[in-house]
Simulated assay, not measured.
Amino acid sequence: MSAENIVETEGLRREFTVGRRRARRRVVAVSDVDLRIAPGEAVGFLGPNGAGKSTTIKMLTGILVPTTGRLRVCGLDPTRQRRELARRLGVVFGQRSQLWWDLPLRDSFELLGAIHRVPGPEHRARLERCVEVLELAPFLDVPVRQLSLGQRMRGEVTAALLHGPRLLVLDEPTVGLDLVSKERLRAFLQEVNVVDGMTILLTTHDLPDVERLCRRVVVIDQGRVVADDTIDALRARSGGAREVVVELTEPAAPLNGLSGVRDVRVEAGGLRQRLAFAPADTTAAALIAAVAARVELRDVTVVEPSIEDLVRTLYARR
């Protein structure tokens, strides 16, 4: 296995025994997962409930021992070197907290700095940056139990970053957040990845998180990896329809009969029309030229298929 990758697995498998006595049976939660994540990558790890995402994350972080297979995280064996791995790993679980419930947020940060033995100047520099960017100052002295969910999640991300981890694992980091809190958190995580070069592994059902933060996605279903590629490449492979949205100067009848167009939707009394097409059939440029030859255009927009549509297509094929 290469020491250059932040995450590397080979044939990773995890089985569980369920039931009682004679009714016991073996259930395979993760089967033959091969995964490689290079330093500085931001990877979305997607799948439906029960697909094996959480089990995989627990093996990567040393919480669960694989049944078979090999894995290295930050150059370490998560099972045998769990304590050392904790110094190189930051984890945020949307449904679990690493903060002290009855202590002010500031005290939790001080305790975590001491636990990880972060030098004082280093700890203060990281904390000041998080306080500024995530706007934590107004509630640093508020007990964690009195914080709103959005405030607490910003605190959780700060807590995961104070010791300068090489890998940041995020499990549903924006669950339950309002739109403003989500956008603030996404912007900060993007900065940490791009500016600091921190590797990010993100599991979420909030697919706009993935579109904002990740260029690459790994899709897992029934314990197996069913796709591993860039978002653009997966869009091309899935054959998902793109749209050309045309705004016209005057109302027009539906623009039917154009080469490569699969569907036409008319809005605003014919002033706006949505032309769906597949990249294999035509290009946006050719389609726009064909429309311009028939009607007078006021504006044009090309709409890519969302990652939500892409993942839905992958699941349907399974």
Rank of each mutant, 00 (worst) to 15 (best):
A86I: 07
L35A: 04
T17D: 06
R21F: 15
L136M: 12
R82Q: 13
V73T: 06
L103T: 11
E304V: 10
E128N: 14
V303T: 14
P104D: 03
S31L: 14
R70D: 08
I231R: 04
G69C: 05
I307F: 07
S181Q: 13
K58P: 06
S238Y: 09
E128G: 14
Y315M: 12
G52L: 01
R237F: 09
S148H: 04
G94W: 05
A159R: 01
R21N: 13
R83G: 08
D178L: 09
R106S: 13
E84L: 13
L177M: 03
F277R: 00
S238P: 03
V264K: 03
C130K: 04
V226W: 01
V195L: 14
L297S: 08
R88P: 07
D107N: 07
R224H: 12
G270F: 07
I231D: 04
Q222F: 11
T283P: 00
L167T: 07
R294L: 11
H123T: 05
S181V: 08
P39H: 09
T199F: 03
D107G: 10
L189Q: 00
G164D: 15
L248A: 02
V144I: 10
R298W: 12
G90Y: 05
R129H: 15
P305I: 06
D77N: 11
G223Q: 05
L207I: 08
V266D: 03
